[in-house]
Amino acid sequence: MSHSEFRSTAENIEICPITPGDVERVAEFLHAELNSRLSPSAWAAAIRPTWQSASPNHGFMLVDGERVLGAYVAFYSQRRVDDRMENFCNLSAWCVLEPYRSHGLRLLRAMLAQEGYTFTDLSPSGNVVPLNARLNFQHLDTATALVPNWPWPRLGKRLRIVSDPATIEKSLKGRDLQIYRDHAGAPAAYHLAVIEDGECCYVMFRRDSRKRLRLFASILHVGNPDLFQRVARHVYSHLLTHHGILVTLAETRVVCSRPRYSILLASPRPKMFRSSRVSSSQVDYLYSELTCVPW
């Protein structure tokens, strides 16, 4: 391609919102250019959130006619924070073809130009972290404990750990029941109800890879931290015996304490947010790519 031909093509490049009708072609693009381990249909299922929310788009894409040159996927939700409703936009998969990388920032600017949102970026890549910092994103405290999932015998019948959807529905109530219903079909989310003497703790986790080994679980939500602390060793044992997961990654801000027999990671993965109305303690990992995209 000559320089003049490239310039002519560049003049036709547009930034457009990803509409429901665009999801399939964006999914094909992300399969081909970002992560081929996820099929196009898996990408499409991930992009469409399982919760009901007034979403202005599914993010933004860079296009030249019908050809997708880049995409930045987003997940939207309305969440109650203290006594008010807050609009969240979770920034997810960001990919731009190499010849058009100079246009990539246009996608980010389009996303951040949407007013009235708290923005979260829960898996920024290495070069995105300093960029986010320049755009007034703040770091969350992601201190993470690595917990070996040892088998642990359960004596008596006082404690049950269940994953059957019908039993989870019956066991949960209030906010946790709504969270479960919103995420029950989310492609990356796994669900447990931990029940002891009539008390229940809802646990959501995802499977994760480190150094290409898909042997890890990351805890995304703990509904009853006090009960979780008492029974955590049995939850980790359940992840081993029922899911074949050897290690759990437990952020202390999620599980509310450092697990016993754990090792703190020297360099936990960063997570960031930008908001003028929400504090770091009010940011969680629900309604996000962490529940939707099974990397």
Rank of each mutant, 00 (worst) to 15 (best):
S262Y: 03
G104K: 04
H183C: 03
P130Y: 01
W152L: 15
H139G: 07
S262V: 04
V194I: 05
V254C: 10
T50P: 03
S92F: 02
I18C: 00
L105C: 01
Y76H: 13
S209W: 10
C89Y: 03
T118V: 10
T248R: 07
T167F: 10
H58C: 03
C201R: 05
S41K: 14
V283E: 04
F29V: 06
G174S: 08
Y285N: 14
S267P: 00
Y100H: 04
Y180T: 08
F205K: 02
A184S: 12
T118A: 12
E98Y: 09
L97C: 04
I179K: 07
C200L: 03
W94H: 09
I179S: 04
S218H: 12
L265E: 10
V203M: 02
G223C: 06
E33C: 11
T167H: 12
K271Q: 15
I18R: 01
N87W: 07
M272W: 04
T19D: 09
R160M: 10
D208C: 11
A193E: 07
V231N: 02
I195D: 01
L146F: 03
V203W: 01
I195M: 08
G174H: 08
L159G: 03
W150E: 10
S280D: 14
A133M: 08
L122H: 08
G244C: 06
S280T: 09
F6L: 14
